[in-house]
């Protein structure tokens, strides 16, 4: 039994060690009113199948993972995701008009030029913290495209 548990632990450990998620091009849009939610965008890529479970930041009460779906009638609807699947090797892009991290209950306005830490928690890769630069209200992405 002990041996079995040890084997399971080893398996889990090595899986966790192997799973690597790359977070690239994080940015957030400057907010106009502090009382309104903000949006942050980034690109994720995982070597192994993984899931984004949550995101937290000191600048917001909570962060929601939102997919944005536009149906055939051009109605845009935000879909709240409890977790986001990251299939191995596939680039998952958060971008204006599409998937976004909604920052709720902002401590203050997100001012252009500032930056804040964002911690993403993955099922296998664990927690990854990135610095998120705040770009202008009209920004469509970081200057350097991936």
């Amino acid at each position: 039994m002990k041996l079995f548990l040890a084997a399971v632990c080893t398996a889990m450990f090595s899986a966790a060690a192997l799973a690597e998620v790359v977070v690239s091009d994080p940015w957030a849009r400057a907010s106009i009113l502090a009382s309104r939610p903000g949006a942050a965008y980034l690109t994720l890529r995982s070597d192994a199948d993984d899931r984004l479970l949550s995101a937290t930041t000191p600048v917001a009460d909570h962060v929601m993972i939102h997919a944005s779906e536009t149906d055939a009638d051009s109605v845009a609807r935000m879909i709240h995701l409890d977790a986001l699947d990251l299939p191995a090797g596939r680039m998952v892009r958060f971008a204006p008009g599409g998937m976004h991290l909604m920052l709720m209950g902002l401590a203050g306005k997100l001012d252009e030029g500032a930056s804040f830490p964002l911690t993403l928690t993955f099922e296998r890769a664990g927690a990854i913290t990135v610095g998120v630069p705040v770009l202008g209200v009209a920004a469509t992405g970081p200057e350097v495209e991936p």
Partner: peptide
């Protein structure tokens, strides 16, 4: 209150 589509479209 729309953080994504509206600012994108207005910009």
């Amino acid at each position: 209150f729309c953080p994504n589509i509206c600012p994108t479209t207005l910009a």
